[in-house]
Amino acid sequence: MTEYKLVVVGAGGVGKSALTIQLIQNHFVDEYDPTIEDSYRKQVVIDGETCLLDILDTAGQEEYSAMRDQYMRTGEGFLCVFAINNTKSFEDIHHYREQIKRVKDSEDVPMVLVGNKCDLPSRTVDTKQAQDLARSYGIPFIETSAKTRQGVDDAFYTLVREIRKHKEKMSKDGKKKKKKSKTKCVIM
Score class of each variant (00 low, 15 high):
Thr2Asp: 13
Thr2His: 12
Glu3Trp: 05
Glu3Phe: 07
Glu3Asn: 09
Tyr4Cys: 12
Lys5Asn: 15
Lys5Phe: 02
Lys5Tyr: 02
Leu6Ala: 05
Leu6Ile: 13
Val7Asn: 12
Val7Gly: 09
Val7Pro: 02
Val7Glu: 07
Val8Met: 11
Val8Thr: 07
Val8Pro: 00
Val8Gly: 04
Val8Cys: 09
Gly10Pro: 00
Gly10Gln: 00
Gly10Ile: 00
Ala11Tyr: 08
Ala11Glu: 14
Ala11Asn: 10
Ala11Pro: 14
Gly12Met: 06
Gly12Arg: 03
Gly13Leu: 14
Val14Arg: 05
Val14His: 11
Val14Lys: 08
Gly15Tyr: 00
Gly15Thr: 00
Gly15Gln: 01
Lys16Thr: 08
Lys16Gly: 02
Lys16Leu: 02
Ser17Cys: 04
Ala18Asn: 06
Leu19Met: 14
Leu19Arg: 00
Thr20Ala: 14
Ile21Ser: 14
Ile21Tyr: 14
Ile21Cys: 11
Gln22Ile: 01
Leu23Met: 11
Leu23Ser: 15
Leu23Pro: 02
Ile24Lys: 05
Ile24Glu: 14
Ile24Ser: 14
Ile24Leu: 13
Gln25Phe: 08
Gln25His: 13
Asn26Gly: 09
His27Ser: 11
His27Tyr: 15
His27Lys: 13
His27Leu: 13
Phe28Ile: 04
Phe28Cys: 04
Phe28Asp: 01
Phe28Leu: 03
Val29Met: 13
Val29Arg: 12
Val29Glu: 11
Asp30Ile: 10
Asp30Cys: 11
Asp30Arg: 10
Asp30Asn: 13
Asp30Met: 12
Glu31Val: 07
Glu31Asn: 09
Glu31Ala: 06
Glu31Tyr: 10
Tyr32Phe: 04
Tyr32Met: 03
Tyr32Trp: 13
Tyr32Leu: 04
Tyr32Pro: 02
Asp33Trp: 13
Pro34Gly: 02
Pro34His: 02
Thr35Asp: 00
Thr35Glu: 00
Thr35Ala: 05
Thr35Arg: 01
Thr35Met: 01
Thr35Gly: 01
Ile36Ser: 01
Ile36Met: 11
Ile36Arg: 01
Glu37Arg: 00
Glu37Leu: 00
Glu37Ala: 02
Glu37Tyr: 02
Glu37Thr: 02
Asp38Pro: 00
Asp38Asn: 07
Asp38Cys: 03
Ser39Lys: 02
Ser39Val: 09
Tyr40Arg: 04
Tyr40Cys: 05
Tyr40Asp: 05
Tyr40Ser: 04
Arg41Phe: 06
Arg41Val: 08
Lys42Pro: 02
Gln43Met: 04
Gln43Asn: 07
Gln43Ser: 05
Val44Arg: 05
Val44Asp: 05
Val44Asn: 08
Val44Glu: 03
Val44Tyr: 05
Val45Glu: 06
Val45Cys: 09
Val45Trp: 06
Val45Ile: 11
Ile46Met: 10
Asp47Val: 03
Asp47Ala: 08
Asp47Thr: 06
Gly48Ala: 10
Gly48Pro: 12
Gly48Gln: 12
Gly48Phe: 05
Gly48Leu: 05
Gly48Glu: 12
Glu49Ala: 10
Glu49Phe: 07
Glu49Lys: 12
Glu49Asn: 09
Thr50Gln: 04
Thr50Gly: 10
Thr50Trp: 03
Cys51Ser: 10
Cys51Val: 10
Leu52Cys: 10
Leu53Met: 13
Leu53Asp: 02
Leu53Ile: 15
Leu53Lys: 04
Asp54Val: 03
Ile55Ala: 10
Ile55Thr: 13
Leu56Ser: 04
Leu56Asp: 08
Leu56Thr: 05
Leu56Ile: 05
Asp57Gly: 02
Thr58Lys: 03
Thr58Gly: 08
Ala59Met: 15
Ala59Cys: 15
Gly60Gln: 06
Gly60Tyr: 07
Gly60Lys: 03
Gly60Val: 09
Gly60Ala: 05
Gln61Leu: 14
Gln61Phe: 15
Gln61Ser: 14
Glu63Phe: 04
Glu63Ala: 04
